[in-house]
């Protein structure tokens, strides 16, 4: 995560989302294997500082994953 936070500011917006997406996906895949791609896609619409908070706090990430699953099921 330290590598990510130090690399992120010098990356393009597209690259920033890509890097955050890779990290988020690997974490989300552990709890939601079938929906991980869509959940990650949804969460990437959130601003990067919030996404970094999710990577730093598993509890925060899981609460956002739960929200995303609820939205997906309602969709």
């Amino acid at each position: 995560l330290e590598t990510l936070t130090s690399t992120l500011p010098s990356a393009s917006p597209q690259e920033q989302k890509q890097m955050l997406g890779e990290r988020l996906f690997s974490l989300i895949q552990a709890v939601q294997p079938t929906l991980a791609g869509k959940i990650t896609g949804m969460l990437l619409e959130i601003n990067n500082s919030e996404l970094l908070r999710m990577l730093e706090s598993p509890e925060f990430l899981l609460s956002k994953v739960d929200e995303a699953v609820a939205v997906l099921q309602a969709h």
């Binding site: 917006p13 597209q14 989302k17 890509q18 997406g21 890779e22 988020l24 996906f25 690997s26 991980a36 791609g37 869509k38 990650t40 896609g41 949804m42 990437l44 619409e45 997906l72 969709h75």
Partner: peptide, 22 residues
């Protein structure tokens, strides 16, 4: 428009296209 393709799905190792419309 149709929201049937929402949300964009992220695939590891594949460039994410979700920002194209921003």
């Amino acid at each position: 428009g149709s929201s049937i393709n929402w949300p964009p799905e992220f695939h590891p190792g594949v460039p994410w296209k979700g920002l194209q419309n921003i």
